[in-house]
Amino acid sequence: MASLKIERINVGYPGKPVLTNVSLPEIPPGSLVGVLGPNGVGKSTLLRALAGLGPYTGTALLKGENLNGMSHFRRAQRVGYLPQALPQETSLVAYEAVLSACRAVRPDLAKTRIDAAVERVFDMLDIRPLAFQALNKMSGGQRQMVGLAQVIVRRPSVMLLDEPTSALDLRWQLTVLDTVRMILGRHQGLCLMALHDINLAIRHCDFIALFGDGRLLAFGPPAEAVTSDILSQAYGIAGRVEICSRGLPFVVTEPTQSILPPTGH
C-alpha cells in the first residue's frame, strides 16, 4: 500500500525554474495518475526529480516518508523510474538487463526468486521472445518494453513512467496500460505516467495532472480535470470533452488556430 503527497514542489535548473509550487493532494494506493501537458512544460523534469535524478525543493511524502530524506538505495527500492530515453544500445540481452535491474535493487533475494521474478515480468508484458535478443538488435518499441520490464521487476511502491508508450503501436500501448493497471491493483502501489495521448490518459488514468505555463493547471479525476478551458490554457487549442456511448469521456479538438504562444523550456 503506497500513497503519495506532494507539497509546494519546485523543479528546474539553477536560475531556471521549470515547474513551481506544484501540490497534489494525497494520492490513494492503486492509483494511476496521468501527467499531461505540452512539450517542454516540465513533465520529465518533475518525474526525474521525484526519482532522485534531479533537484527539487518542497516536500514529496511517500507513505508519510520524505523522499529526499531516504538513502539512495532505499529510494531506488521504493521508486521505479522509466526514463524517456530508451535503454542504451548495448549488446546486453533483455534477460540480462532485467536481471541486473532486479539484482541491483534486490541483492538479498535468493537466485530462484530472482529467476521467478524475471520470468513473471516477461510473461506479464508478453515479451518472452525478446528474452535473449540483444538490446542493440531491437526496435525502439521493443527496447521500450524491456525498459518497462526493468522497472516492474523491482516491484517499486511508486512507478514514475516517462512516456512509456511513445514508441509503441496501439496494441502494445494497451498492453502497457493494462499491465500497469493490473500491477497497481495487485500491489496497491502508485504510478505517475507522463503521456501525450490525452484520450488514452482519460480512459486509463484515475487522476489527471495537467500542467501548463510552468504550473499545475488542474488535478482530479479525468472528467473533472480535463475541460475545454484547461485544454485551451495548457495547449492553446480549442477542444471540448464529450461522453461516448459507453459513458467514457473523450476530447474532440477543433481545427482552429493556436490561441496561445507555445511554451518552451
Binding site: 532522485g52 541486473s100 535491474a101 541491483a104 526493468q150
Partner: peptide, 20 residues
Amino acid sequence: VWAMTALRGGEDYARSYGVA
C-alpha cells in the same frame, strides 16, 4: 559487476537503481 552491467542499460536507469 552488477553496477557496471546496470550502467550498460543506460545511465538514468542505473541511477534510478541506486547506483552512484
